[in-house]
Write a protein that binds this DNA or RNA. Structure first.
Length: 260
DNA sequence: CCTTAGTCCTGCATGC
DNA sequence: TGCATGCAGGACTAAG
């Protein structure tokens, strides 16, 4: 999302919104007529990211886009276009931002200025001190991996990056969050921002669907140590990596480096 | 409040 | 080859 926002910001700044056109009804939350009545004609003055939400601030209201797993944004697509277009955001300047999403999970939402923007999200996990504070605030017996994925605890960590951070911190994903030792907390606090910032430098992780608004893939998949490597040897110790389910999520780890 | 399970969806991998 | 089946997954909601 960070990579997408960085690409999107210069493309969208100062454009004036004409209309949001949902093609799959559930993609746009709320009544399209009302949404457009509020948002139409307004100028974009900021584009940024909060957690996994892309935020587009107009003069007053805010548009958020959540791409979930398979969503993509395409700016000014060629006329021949592509399948799975779920919504189009049209601008007065004859430009267009298209949401493509095979699985139909992505959502666009308009927020009025006076209402609280976004769900209650935890802090951004890009600095060790922030992550450390969040981990120390956890009194939960849930698995540490489940806590990392909880957007109320920290906002923006997805399944891939949770597995990668836990591997780098040498922590078993099922350890109850409140039972983490001081050493484990320190290692995880360092590992989470390390993984996320490295992925941002590599412009994201492209496994199947992910592309930036210019349709360029990321390259962080080359740096993955455990995610999607079930049965392959651990880069540290050679032990075959294991896949389990934690909090209904596929979870990849090294049974030797990440002891229970 | 805390936690878990179910829901939404389709493309792709797998197996017969 | 063709078909059926099962699985993945982020956030929300309902239920325990």
């Amino acid at each position: 999302m960070e990579t997408i926002v960085r690409r999107l910001r210069p493309l969208l700044s100062n454009l004036r919104l004409r209309r949001i056109e949902p093609l799959w009804p559930r993609t746009l939350i709320g009544d399209p007529e009302q949404v457009n009545a509020v948002a139409s004609g307004r100028r974009i003055h900021d584009v940024f990211r909060r957690g996994k939400y892309i935020c587009i601030d107009l003069d007053g209201p805010r548009i958020t886009v959540h791409l979930r797993m398979s969503g993509r944004l395409v700016f000014d697509p060629r006329p021949e276009s592509q399948p799975h277009i779920r919504a189009r955001i049209h601008f007065m300047e004859s430009r267009c931002l298209v949401l493509v999403d095979p699985r139909k999970f992505a959502r666009i939402r308009m927020w009025r200025a006076q209402e609280a923007f976004l769900p209650r999200l935890g802090p951004e996990p890009l600095r060790p001190e922030t992550v450390r504070r969040a981990l120390d605030g956890l009194a939960t017996c849930r698995a540490v991996k489940t806590a990392l994925l909880d957007q109320h605890v920290l906002a923006g960590i997805g399944n891939i990056y949770a597995d990668e951070a836990l591997f780098r911190a040498r922590i078993h994903p099922r350890i109850p969050a409140r039972e983490l030792t001081i050493g484990q907390r320190s290692r995880l606090s360092a590992a989470v921002p390390q993984v996320l910032n490295a992925a941002i430098r590599r412009k994201g992780t492209t496994l199947n669907d992910y592309r930036d608004p210019d349709q360029r893939p990321g390259t962080f998949q080359q740096e993955l140590k455990v995610y999607g490597r079930t049965g392959q040897p651990c880069f540290t110790c050679g032990t075959p990596l294991v896949r389990i389910v934690v909090g209904q999520r596929g979870t990849h780890f090294c049974p030797k480096c990440q002891k229970a």
